[in-house]
Design a binder for these strands. Structure first.
Lengths: 269, 269
DNA sequence: GCGCCAACAG
DNA sequence: CTGTTGGCGC
């Protein structure tokens, strides 16, 4: 089973790119973040026509918003409020094989990496703490197969950013964020599939700023988009080797691209 | 000599349409209104590459703005403030043959056709009064060949609108506006070329609202864009017959069209 | 309906 | 730099 995740930065603007990606990669399920539209504005029609007839959306006007689109039926669709906010940053569904799929859009965190002066950064830290605590229960309750994907807005490792030194004090790569992400990984017993399959020092990025004149030339990327699997799926995730995992960076060259590229994992179920 | 006028409703957004029109119709000079950009933002480069190397612009951020682009040199470029406002509604230049060309964008006038409650309508009436008075002097000073073109935002005749009755109290076709336009025509001894060549009851429209679902089917147009000539040019304007005059309504079907279409007149000089 | 801009967010 | 919204003007 092939799972994809993509921060699409407006699904209405980029529905043609989504369709192109689905045609090229034919994942069984695609998790989107930053759809930036209300549920009723989500372009479900062309997705259904493309063979993805099962769609779960949690959207709002303008900001954030997540969705799961799948070829096969989605069961037990749920959304969860983190930090007591109803801001469309999580949606979950169970896939036919019994895999529980969680799709996240973690707060970006603003500019200043100081929770005392920056509410957005405080929100991000709180969100990650809650995600870690929630992971504990999730690892127990859904004792079985689970996948967590999404734009977690943290690049945890030295080689997940273009310059570890220059980004140490930049939101997305600060030690406090990295520690919270590692705590979530540990408490949920999650496997960070990308880094298990492709160890450091190989660089891995899934996001490149719009501000660069030539994103590929400067290559100042960050690995913000992740796929985590629960212990019962560890073998299915890793047995295929690195061929089972892909960062589709050619999509960054498409017309009017998202600043994130899609990431896929094929589970050997 | 072929003269064109077009309210382009943002020249930056529609520069490709302008280039296409220039290629198709090859006018000697094109007058644009509602360029909606500052002088330095005007897309002069591609116009020059297309053979229109002489450009005069009077633009500002966001609203209004007029320009003249020509294959041959423009002399004595002037802009005139009407109603004491510096709002980029007029630009003039002299063409190589000695023709004085005036390009206008008359105020739209708002919704309520009552100058006592609607300042915009009052401004429009004042503008037309000033245009009429200015025409007197212009007819004397530039005693010779002159052309006045532009979006005058008035449809003066019964068959210049889709329903004379339904528009009698709608700004652009009210009796007070029509009388002021007729006064300007008389005081400047101008010839309204379109209606001399194509008499009523034939309908003539140069503008169709964006709000119609199917502009051609409903065909609720208005003739807002005009080409007037001074007495010394009357023969040159009319001798070619109606073949010399054209309303290029096919441009309304182009991608992301302006709500106005270009109008051309070939002067038999 | 469709331009523009400013404000906000990423 | 690239999205969103909301207000304004036509």
């Amino acid at each position: 089973m092939k799972i994809a995740t993509w921060n699409i930065n407006s699904v209405r603007l980029r529905i043609d790119s989504v369709l192109r990606f689905l045609k090229e990669e034919a994942p069984d399920v695609l998790c989107l973040q930053e759809i930036k539209c209300r549920d009723e504005q989500f372009p479900a029609r062309p997705l259904r026509s493309a063979g993805y007839e099962h769609i779960a959306v949690s959207g709002q006007a303008g900001y954030h918003g997540v969705a799961i689109i799948a070829r096969a039926p989605l069961k037990d669709v749920e959304t969860r409020k983190f930090c007591g906010k109803d801001d469309c940053r999580h949606i979950a569904a169970t896939l036919p094989g019994g895999v529980r799929l969680h799709n996240f859009y973690v707060p970006s965190g603003g500019d200043e990496p100081d929770p005392a002066v920056n509410d957005k950064f405080a929100h991000k830290l709180d969100f990650m703490k809650e995600l870690a605590e929630w992971s504990v229960g999730e690892a127990q309750t859904h004792s079985k197969k689970a996948v967590l994907v999404g734009d977690l807005n943290i690049a945890p490792r030295e080689h997940d950013v273009w310059s570890h030194r220059q980004l140490l004090n930049v939101v997305s790569h600060t030690p406090v964020e990295v520690e919270l992400m590692n705590a979530a990984l540990e408490k949920g017993k999650w496997t960070d599939v990308a880094r298990e399959l492709i160890p450091e020092p190989e660089k891995l990025y899934t996001w490149w700023s719009y501000r660069a004149r030539d994103w590929r030339a400067s290559n100042r990327g960050r690995r913000l988009d992740h796929i985590w699997t629960s212990p019962p799926l560890r073998k299915a995730a890793l047995s295929g080797g690195r061929a089972a995992f892909a960062i589709h960076d050619h999509c960054r060259d498409w017309e009017r691209p998202s600043d994130h590229v899609p990431v896929t994992l094929t589970l050997d179920l």
